[in-house]
Computed example of a mutant assay.
Amino acid sequence: MDFVTSLFVRKMVAASTLDQAKLLASVGLSADATIDPKAMVAATAYYELLERIAAETDATALPLRTGASMRCDDYGALGLAFKAAPTLRDSYARVARFARLWTNVVEYSSERTDAGTWFNLHRHGPRRLGMRLSNEATLASAIAIGREVSPDGQLRAQEVHLTHAPPPTLQQHRDYFDCPVIFNSDRDGIIFANASLDRPNKLGDQGITQFLITHLEQELAQVTSQSQLQDRIRDLIARSLSEGQPKMDDIARRLGMSSRSLHRRLSDDGVSFQTLAETTRKELAIGMLGDARFSLSEVAFLTGFAEQSSFNRAFKRWLGVTPANFRKERGQV
């Protein structure tokens, strides 16, 4: 399942001007609960939340306010490792290595050239509005925490690039990033002067950062193990859907474990079998509706629905439109 940390969700909601409790409840979070960065939210639910916010208010500055609110301490051990790294180049390398602890829909890479060093964001999938807002917030966050650890509190990029089209006005983006912001680019990323990334961080400490990296490597190994189990479950669910809605007992047996053990493993990961099954059906349906070779009735059958009407109701609950309208909106008939 594609996920993002609930920390990002809460930060986005806090930066909006709408009813925070209602927005959080729509993705299964409580406004009164203690913030737990390890609590995850499905990426599709996160994007849909951002799109609901944008439908009710001007969201141009939302990702910039969110990014500006981020602090290293929000990221736990990763934030501490970012602060303790000797240079900003080392700090961003920590992000690229350990981002998997916060989301599995984004990867980062760096590319050093004579003109500067790129800090690139890689996120696959259609550039729906929710994803575009999330990408802007991610790059704004990278600037915010970079400024936090810079020796003089200043960090100015050479350029910020985004692959999607620009908003109606660019002034807020230019003011926040304090550099040219290039939309409709061939990448999502930031280019820094090499000298800017090679300056010592004001709190750099090699001993502390090494201790933290050891801790983060252990966490990463655990998350990878959890992800591998969930990927196996989703694969078995997908293979079983043409026979109807899969049962946890059947999937557990095919995994060679009891249903109680499977339930406990998933609970420890903060996810339920029902959620994995629902997400798998939804993603398969969206993928097949983008392929004109599949009729609507075939998509319904292959995603485990006994009747077309049941599939129509479920899909409208997921995305707010019927499968037929979803296909028409994407040029598939």
Score class of each variant (00 low, 15 high):
G153Y: 08
M131N: 11
L29Q: 03
D175V: 11
T163I: 11
S310D: 14
T17M: 09
G204Y: 07
T113N: 06
Y46W: 07
G270F: 03
A99P: 00
G67P: 06
L262F: 07
F3I: 13
A59T: 01
L29Y: 04
D188P: 00
E51K: 03
I53V: 14
D269G: 03
A314P: 05
T214R: 13
S227D: 13
F82R: 01
T113G: 13
L155S: 08
Y47D: 07
G270T: 07
I145P: 00
R327F: 06
L133H: 06
S185G: 12
A33Q: 08
L197K: 03
T60H: 01
F301I: 02
A137F: 08
H173A: 05
D205R: 12
M12G: 00
G207H: 12
R65T: 12
A43Y: 14
A238D: 08
E51S: 03
V333N: 13
L155H: 06
F294R: 11
F315P: 04
S196Q: 13
A43W: 13
R264M: 12
A93L: 09
E217G: 14
I145A: 00
S91F: 01
Q228E: 14
N325D: 14
A15Q: 10
F294G: 12
R317E: 14
L23H: 02
A43D: 09
D188L: 00
A277S: 15
L319S: 08
A31E: 12
G116C: 12
A43N: 10
F273Y: 15
F177G: 01
K328E: 13
S297G: 01
D32M: 04
M1W: 04
A292C: 08
Y46S: 05
E48Y: 05
I286E: 11
C179G: 05
E111N: 13
T34Q: 12
D19Q: 09
A140L: 02
L296P: 05
T117A: 10
D269A: 15
Y75E: 04
V27E: 09
I208E: 14
A252H: 07
P246T: 10
I237K: 11
L284T: 04
Q158R: 14
E298M: 06
K38Y: 04
L133W: 06
F183P: 00
K316L: 10
G331Y: 08
Q245N: 04
H263L: 13
L7N: 05
Q228V: 11
L62W: 03
I53K: 06
S110C: 02
I251E: 01
L276T: 01
T138C: 03
K316A: 11
R239E: 09
A137G: 15
T5K: 02
A42R: 11
D19L: 04
Y176L: 07
D198M: 14
L62Y: 02
L319G: 03
A99V: 15
A42V: 07
L18G: 00
F8Y: 12
A144L: 07
S295W: 05
A238T: 02
A61G: 03
E329T: 07
K11F: 02
A39L: 13
Q218M: 11
F8K: 05
Q218I: 09
F294Q: 09
G290L: 15
N135L: 01
D249W: 06
Q171S: 15
V27I: 14
D19E: 14
E159V: 15
P323Y: 11
L101I: 09
W102Y: 14
A33G: 04
S225C: 08
R132F: 00
